[in-house]
Amino acid sequence: MYDQSNPDAPVDAFHAVGHAPCTPERRRNSPQIPDPHEGLNPAMLMTLEALEIFHWRLAFVRRPLFRDPIPVLFDRDDRRYVVIQPDGTLDESGTLKLRA
């Protein structure tokens, strides 16, 4: 802090009036977009590759904390979706809640 008894004492940058705190810049030049295939196990990747042959596309991967990733695929018309289970099977039940 500022020592009023000694005007020549250094001033703390945080408490200095009219000065911004001297902290390093935290932003990066370009945000890195993670690979959606990263973290999928071999069974999930094999199912994903098979569905991509039939023009299904990986729309997104939900990554809940402390759980397996949840890849979500849509058909070519974006009318139906499926979820790939950790064992590579498909869940077509539509229980996943999607925002409209």
Rank of each mutant, 00 (worst) to 15 (best):
T95P: 00
D87I: 10
L45T: 10
L40F: 14
I84V: 07
H37N: 15
V11Q: 07
L90D: 01
M1W: 09
A50R: 15
P71E: 03
R57Y: 05
V83E: 06
L73G: 03
F54Y: 14
W56F: 08
P31W: 10
G88R: 01
N41T: 07
K97R: 09
H37V: 15
P31K: 08
R67S: 14
L65R: 10
F74L: 09
D8H: 13
D35R: 07
K97D: 00
L90N: 01
D8F: 14
R63G: 11
S93T: 08
F14N: 08
L98T: 00
L65E: 12
A16M: 01
S93F: 01
V11S: 02
Y81C: 04
R28A: 09
P31N: 12
L98P: 00
D91W: 07
G88H: 02
R26S: 02
D78G: 10
L98V: 00
I33L: 12
T89D: 00
T95N: 03
R62H: 10
E52Y: 13
A20S: 06
P10D: 04
E25F: 01
E52D: 12
M1F: 07
A59S: 14
H19K: 14
Q4E: 00
Y2W: 00
G39H: 09
Q32V: 15
D8S: 14
P34T: 11
A9H: 05
N29W: 06
M46V: 15
N41S: 12
P86N: 01
I84G: 01
E25P: 05
E38Q: 15
E25V: 05
S5E: 06
G88K: 01
P36E: 03
P69M: 12
D75M: 10
Q4F: 00
P64W: 02
A100G: 11
D35W: 13
P21R: 05
Y81N: 07
G39R: 09
T89P: 00
T47R: 08
R57N: 11
M44L: 02
V82K: 05
A59I: 15
